Simulated scan of single mutants.
Amino acid sequence: MSSRTGKIIIILSSFCLLFILLMGCNRGRVVDDLQILSIMGFGLEDEAYKGTALYSDYTEQKQGKIHLLHGQAKNTRIILEEINQQSPKPIEVGKLHMLIFSRNLAEDGIAHFIKTICRDPLINSNLIVAVSDEPVENIMTKEGSESLPDLLQNNFKSGNVPFSNLHLLLYDYYGEGRDVSIPFINLNQNGKVEVNRYAIFKKDRLSLVLNQKEMILYKILKGESMKGQMEVEVRKGPQKGLTVLKSLSGKKIETIYQSGQKIKYRITLDGMVKEYPEWLNLRKKEDVKILTKELEKNLMKDLSNLLSTFQDHGVDPLGAGDLVRTHSKRWNEAEFYENIYQQIEFDIDLRIQLQTSGIGE
Rank of each mutant, 00 (worst) to 15 (best):
M1G: 09
T5N: 12
G6D: 09
S14M: 10
L22G: 14
C25P: 01
L34M: 04
Q35P: 00
I36L: 00
G43S: 15
E45W: 00
S56K: 11
S56N: 05
K62D: 07
I66D: 01
I66M: 01
I66S: 00
L68G: 04
L69S: 09
G71V: 05
A73K: 04
L80Y: 09
E82G: 00
E82S: 08
L96P: 03
E107H: 13
K115D: 10
T116A: 11
I117W: 02
L122D: 13
N126F: 02
I128L: 03
A130Y: 13
A130N: 02
N154I: 13
N155P: 11
F156Y: 14
N165P: 09
L169A: 15
S181G: 08
S207R: 15
L208T: 10
Q212S: 09
K222P: 03
K227L: 11
K236F: 05
K240S: 07
T243R: 05
K246P: 01
E254H: 15
G260F: 06
I267K: 14
G271D: 06
G271S: 03
V273R: 01
K274P: 02
P277D: 08
R283Q: 11
R283P: 02
K285D: 08
I290E: 04
L299W: 00
M300D: 11
K301T: 15
D302M: 10
S304Q: 13
S308Q: 15
Q311D: 15
D312H: 13
H313V: 00
V315Y: 04
G319D: 12
G319L: 11
D322Y: 13
V324P: 02
R330G: 14
E335M: 07
I340M: 08
E345P: 00
L354E: 06
Q355Y: 11
Q355H: 15
